[in-house]
Simulated scan of single mutants.
Amino acid sequence: MKKTLTLLALLALTAGGSAVHAQARLKDIGVVQGVRSNQLVGYGLVIGLDGTGDGTGTTFTPQSVASMLAKFGVNSPAAAMKLKNVAAVMVTAALPAFVKNGSQIDVTVSSLGDAKSLQGGTLLQTPLQAADGKVYAVAQGSVSVGGFLGGGGAGGSVTKNHVTAGRIPAGAMVEQEVPTTFSGTESHSVSVTLNQPDFTTAVRAAKAIQRNLPLGATGARAMDAATIQVDFSPGADTVNMIAELEDTPVDTDEVAKIVVNERTGTVVMGGNATITPCAIAHGNLTISVTNDPIISQPAPFSNGKTVVQPRKIVQTKEGDARLMKVMGGTTLDKVVKSLNALGVTPRDLISILQAMKEAGALHAEIEVL
């Protein structure tokens, strides 16, 4: 394992060592209350598969096929069906706000039974319902899985990507609109909700709007860590006002956070992470076990046999443990340099950061995925 630190860092540093604030448009960090998408779901059948459909263990697939055929005047008992080219699937989609009747949206198709692959299949007409039980869209079309399942001899096969789920771009036709209203329009105000609640960002956003009030707006204030209320005069053009609001630049702020993924050894550190004076020592212990067999030969003209006797060799090696002093008030770039000087790996870094947090030397939230 190389003694280098693979670190993904989000740096926000000035020449003097203090963090600068990232700037983003209001539309990139928040949404207008009332403007939201709705989840849709439906049950359907994918046909035309090359023998990779549901097996005999999935009983609801023949029942669904029998029910579908009955609508076309074909009566066939489900128990007599041997289907290999059909798969039962769940179809999901997100219905965006302001979508109109006749618009097309993307859908995701996922196998519900024991189908091996949806490659080359076609989804039959599937109604998509919302939580209220009403049908808002109908999906149909060819499924794209972005991979393949290939069979070889003696039952072997090769698979690329996940082939039991796929997408149909623009595969659903919207049949019914969902009324969308801005929250608070009756009181001549609109509210913007931050994607990540933060008091500092909310106050800065309200001040930024107040400095450059859109046409028709009369004022803005932060209601809480996630909500900015913008008041407007009666008769104001709310669509143009919201368009100007979305383009307002805001100096964002975030908590000091370090995200680690122990499965992949990935570490992402925020630019606000700092530490107090501390000393870090780190050393690695490597244990290797090898098998060096010994061949035992019998004496000449004896009745013995040549045998192989196993012999295991166990070796241990402890890496150099060096003590590294880290000064207080250190910002992210200095933390990275100090840990690089110790020659730690990403997985070692995870243990070091957790130990520093327990010791009270690391001022950042650690989130383990």
Rank of each mutant, 00 (worst) to 15 (best):
T4E: 11
T6Q: 11
T6D: 15
L7A: 08
L11F: 02
A12F: 04
A12G: 10
K27S: 14
K27Y: 08
R36P: 05
S37L: 03
Q39D: 15
Q39S: 15
G42F: 05
G48R: 02
G53M: 03
T59Q: 15
T61L: 05
F72H: 11
N75A: 13
F98T: 09
K116G: 09
L128I: 08
L128G: 04
A137V: 03
G141A: 05
V143P: 03
G151A: 10
N161T: 08
V163G: 01
R167F: 02
M173W: 10
S183M: 13
S183V: 14
T185H: 09
I209P: 01
I209R: 00
N212M: 06
Q229R: 10
S233I: 12
D237I: 01
M241L: 10
I242C: 04
E244F: 00
T252Y: 03
D253L: 02
E262G: 04
T266A: 11
T276F: 01
A279K: 12
H282S: 11
G283W: 12
I294C: 09
A299C: 06
A299K: 12
A299L: 11
S302N: 10
V308K: 12
I313Q: 13
I313P: 04
G329Q: 10
K334R: 15
T345R: 11
R347A: 15
Q354C: 01
E358V: 10
E358C: 06
V368A: 14
L369A: 15
